[in-house]
């Protein structure tokens, strides 16, 4: 049971953290609350479906193409829409909601509101400490860990990462170091959307594709980000694993309540907002 919980936590926590890091980075660097974040995750899933079914691409190739396409689309949406209204936070949130809805509707128009699927990369499962794990999950976990390490490397060991961290902490002062804040915002959005696409690409072979699939991860991701603190990378990762752990504990100790996974996310969201609105490691935005 403990092993089950640990494995479940690691796999789900890693997926949540990739989603949450992207969301958090964009908030930290550009102060954009991107509701459409998980819509890009949904789009990546549809891209893979279209890539494998309509264009006959190899799944791996389709995944790569999907991530690139979604990233470009994310950058374009930012440049063409969000950047122009970014100074108005409320308008930005509404615009990102609208963007997500538009993507959803376009997918319904193109693919219908049916449940679709794409094949897994490698079929079957393996047994780890007596727990069955699909190869796809193993891949997911490995990819997520690689991604997390690359993020860490990018942020901690490169100049761009230094600029992203600095901008996330204090946009004004970052300017004084010669960091072009709007350029860094653009790069960060690219990375963030790319991550969302990646998460979609890697997770989707084990579940269903449908145009509303962005909603439930959105809530979990927001809860993770609020728990960890908006804008904090460390907080996003820790928050993601806390969320994964909570969900796993619920499923294993309270089977009747496994639907509560969703409400747990909401409950955490509300409690954190009331007790500690800045989250565990949130950046302070009072200075702005």
């Amino acid at each position: 049971m403990v092993v089950d919980i640990i494995i479940s936590t690691l796999i789900n926590g890693s997926i949540y953290s990739i989603l949450a890091i992207g969301f958090s980075l964009v908030f930290g660097v550009a102060r954009i609350i991107n509701i459409a974040h998980t819509a890009f995750y949904m789009l990546a899933a549809f891209c893979i479906y279209a890539g494998t079914n309509s264009f006959g691409l190899h799944p791996v190739l389709a995944m790569g193409a999907a991530i690139i396409f979604v990233t470009i689309l994310g950058l374009a949406s930012y440049k063409l829409i969000i950047e122009k209204i970014r100074v108005h936070p409320a308008a930005t949130i509404i615009a990102t909601i609208a963007l997500a809805m538009i993507f959803q509707e376009i997918m319904i128009l193109n693919f219908g509101a049916e449940f679709l699927s794409v094949p897994v990369l490698v079929e079957g499962f393996t047994v780890v400490f007596g727990v069955k794990i699909t190869y796809q999950q193993v891949f997911t976990f490995i990819f997520m860990v690689i991604l997390l390490i690359s993020v860490w490397f990018l942020l901690m060991k490169t100049k761009l990462g230094l600029a992203i961290r600095a901008t996330a902490q204090d946009r004004e002062t970052a300017n004084l170091m010669g960091m072009n804040e709007s350029m860094i915002a653009l790069v960060t959005i690219g990375i963030s959307v790319g991550f969302a696409g990646f998460a979609g690409a890697i997770v989707i072979p084990l579940t269903v594709i449908h145009p509303h699939m962005w909603l439930s991860p959105l809530i979990i991701m927001m809860a993770v980000v609020v728990l960890g603190g908006l804008g904090s990378i460390k907080g996003s990762i820790i928050g993601a694993f806390i969320m994964g752990l909570t969900e796993a504990i619920i499923v294993f100790l309270l089977p009747m309540g496994s639907f509560l996974k969703g409400s747990v996310a909401l409950t955490i969201l509300i409690i954190v907002l009331i007790i500690k609105p800045e989250g565990l490691f949130g950046v302070s935005i009072e200075g702005e």
Binding site: S8, I11, L206, T207, M213, P255, S258, F259, K261, G262
Partner: peptide, 14 residues
């Protein structure tokens, strides 16, 4: 008895 959510995308724990 297990009750996952309607839109759960991961039920491997269940």
């Amino acid at each position: 008895i297990w009750q996952p959510s309607q839109t759960a995308s991961d039920v491997t724990a269940e």
